[in-house]
Amino acid sequence: MTGKGRELADMMERRKVDILCVQETRWKGSKARSIGAGFKLFYYGVDSKRNGVGVVLKEEFVRNVLEVKRVSDRVMSLKLEIEGVMLNVVSGYAPQVGCELEEKERFWSELDEVMESIPTGERVVIGVDFNGHVGERNTDDEEVVLPDDWETTAEVIRVTGRKVLGVSSGRRKEDKNTWWWNEEVQDGIQRKRLAKKKWDMDRTEENRQEYKELQRRVKREVSKAKQKAYDELYTRLDC
């Protein structure tokens, strides 16, 4: 974003874009600032050399902002009320495919946290750079193709979102199976719980090792399930 603010604002004005999610801003801090041409950037970053996310709004919509949730330098969201409609704009920046598993899991967890906090009935727009987490082989020449017409694009996103992501029940997170769960994850979690009970009853080193190993397996299964769910989402959008 360094030196690019006004260029970005000019592009939004020229293309008549009112709301824009941006990633890899590389601006340190948790602020909102004008970038010119009647646009304001809400951003969050912890390092001026990497990551950073933000949402740019046309000035007339700034007064409609009800909440800014800055989760990390990879995930943030804005809640706006526009003509009586609650709109949640989520901006995210996924770790690159080659990053550590722990960093990837943290991103998916943060994105889940934001999605599950949005009440049923409120609209959601997801503007996330999934950074290569698309397609079977994640090769460099892949593209996600969307229709040119915005109304068609919006309908594709809404229909696909309902099919793949489902609708939040509004229950607390610990009481709800997340949308990306599959049979492998559920089975793994059940086996982990049984191993935990076994270790609680008989704290031998063997039982502890068994429980720790199942913990590691569940983490891997969770990561794979989330990856598969988002791949399916983008495959359905590729129409």
Rank of each mutant, 00 (worst) to 15 (best):
I118R: 08
D112E: 13
E113T: 10
G92H: 05
E102L: 08
V85A: 06
E81I: 14
Y93K: 02
E103Q: 13
P95H: 05
Q96H: 14
F107P: 04
C99F: 13
G98E: 09
M115G: 06
G84W: 02
L101M: 11
L80R: 01
G84I: 01
L87I: 14
D112P: 05
T120P: 06
M86D: 14
V114A: 11
K104F: 03
E83H: 13
I118D: 09
D112V: 05
L101P: 13
E102N: 09
E102H: 06
L87M: 10
E116A: 11
E105K: 14
C99G: 06
V97P: 09
T120L: 07
E81D: 11
E110F: 11
V85E: 08
P95Y: 05
E110Y: 11
I82W: 04
L87D: 03
E110N: 07
W108K: 02
E103A: 12
S91R: 06
E102K: 13
E116L: 11
I82D: 09
E103F: 10
S77N: 09
I118N: 12
E110K: 06
E100I: 03
F107N: 05
S91C: 10
V89A: 08
R74K: 10
T120S: 13
A94S: 05
E113I: 00
G98A: 10
V114G: 11
Q96S: 13
M86L: 14
L87R: 03
C99I: 06
E116N: 11
V97L: 12
P95S: 09
L111N: 03
G98T: 12
L87Y: 04
D112T: 05
P119S: 07
C99V: 09
C99T: 11
S117I: 06
